[in-house]
C-alpha cells in the first residue's frame, strides 16, 4: 500500500538525483509492524516508491511446527528473504462468502398460506393495515408512499369508502387469531422481517470529510428526528473517517426528510451525497 511520507529534500534536488542510482530500500521495524520501502523505475522510466506494511504476529505453536518454521528455503525459493515474497504471495482484496438463504422457498410458502386462506372463503383473513387491501401489510404496494408522508393514493380513498360497507360483513365472519390460522405454523416472524426493518429507515451519507467525527455527524442528523443507530466508517489504522456513514432513524419519514435536506448540502468543504442505504451485498444472493 503506497503511503505518503514527508519529503526530506526539495523536489529540485530529487530531480538532480534522479540521474544517479535509486535510493536504497529500507526496512523499518516499529511497534509490531515492518515497513519496507523500495524504489523502482516503472514502464515510463519514472521513479516510483513502493511502501509495504506488514503486521508481525506471534503465535504459539507445537514444537514440530516451530521447527519447520526454521527450515531453510530451497528450490526456486532459496533466494527469498524471510517473510512472504511479494512475487509469489499476494494478498488480495476482500471476498465474501455469499450465503444462499432459502428466501425463494419462504416466499413460496407464504403465498401458499394466502392461497389457502383465500380458498377457505375467508375473504378478509388477510388484510393490509395500510390500505385495507387483500395482502399482508409488508407487501402493500403503497407501503413506501404512505410512510414518507406523501399523499395517500386514490385507491385508499376508494377502499375507505367501501370499507364501511365491508365492515358490516366483517363482523359476520369469525375472527381467526393469526396463531390459529392455517399457515401459522409455517410462517416464522423470522429474520426476513428483522432484516427489512433494520435497513428500512437507514440512510447512507457519503463524501464526508476525513476529519468528521461521530459527534459532528450526530449534530448534523439529529435535527431530523430520533436516531436508532449511527455508524461512521473509520480507518482501522488511523482512526480517520473513511468518508461515509450509515444512520438508522427511528422513523422512516425522518430519514426521508434527512435525505431531501442533506443530499447536496455543503458540509465541511465537501458536498454530501445522501441516499437510502442499500442492503449489504452478501445478504441478497
Amino acid at each position: 500500500m503506497p503511503a505518503a511520507e514527508e519529503v526530506k529534500s526539495s523536489w529540485a534536488d530529487e530531480v538532480e538525483l534522479e540521474g544517479g542510482s535509486l535510493p536504497p530500500s529500507t526496512e523499518v521495524l516499529e511497534n509490531g509492524q515492518k515497513i519496507i520501502t523500495e524504489y523502482k523505475y516503472n514502464e515510463d522510466d519514472k521513479k516510483i516508491k513502493i511502501v509495504r506494511t506488514y503486521k508481525i504476529e506471534k503465535r504459539i505453536v507445537s514444537k514440530s511446527i516451530a521447527l519447520r518454521k526454521t527450515w531453510k528455503k530451497f528450490g526456486e525459493a532459496s533466494g527469498d528473504k524471510p517473510g512472504p515474497n511479494p512475487a509469489t504471495t499476494i494478498v488480495t482484496e476482500d471476498v465474501y462468502m455469499q450465503y444462499i438463504t432459502s428466501k425463494e422457498e419462504d416466499n413460496k410458502q407464504e403465498d401458499d398460506g394466502i392461497d389457502k386462506l383465500k380458498a377457505l372463503g375467508d375473504k378478509n383473513a388477510v388484510k393490509c393495515r395500510t390500505c385495507n387491501g387483500d395482502h399482508w401489510t409488508t407487501k402493500c404496494p403503497w407501503k413506501d408512499t404512505m410512510l414518507v408522508g406523501g399523499k395517500m393514493p386514490d385507491e385508499k380513498k376508494l377502499s375507505a369508502v367501501t370499507g364501511a360497507g365491508e365492515a358490516g360483513k366483517q363482523g359476520g365472519s369469525k375472527y381467526v387469531p393469526p396463531s390459529m390460522r392455517d399457515g401459522a405454523a409455517k410462517r416464522t416472524d423470522g429474520s426476513n422481517m428483522a432484516k427489512r426493518d433494520d435497513s428500512y429507515c437507514a440512510i447512507r451519507i457519503a463524501n464526508l470529510s476525513e476529519s468528521t467525527t461521530e459527534s459532528d455527524l450526530e449534530e448534523l442528523v439529529k435535527q431530523f428526528g430520533p436516531l436508532q443507530k449511527l455508524y461512521l466508517a473509520k480507518d482501522k489504522m488511523t482512526g480517520m473517517c473513511k468518508g461515509f456513514a450509515y444512520i438508522h432513524f427511528k422513523f422512516r419519514n425522518d430519514a426521508a426528510q434527512a435525505i431531501a435536506r442533506l443530499n447536496g448540502h455543503g458540509y465541511d468543504h465537501l458536498i454530501l451525497s445522501v441516499d437510502w442505504s442499500r442492503p449489504m451485498p452478501n445478504s441478497n444472493p
Partner: peptide, 28 residues
Amino acid sequence: EGDLLFSSSKDNKPNVWFSLNGERLGTF
C-alpha cells in the same frame, strides 16, 4: 498439522508453502 501447504501443477515443480502467511518454503 496444516502449517504446510503443498501444491502441484502441470508445470514440473511442486511447491510447498507456509499456510499461515503464504510464504513459499521451496520448490521440488
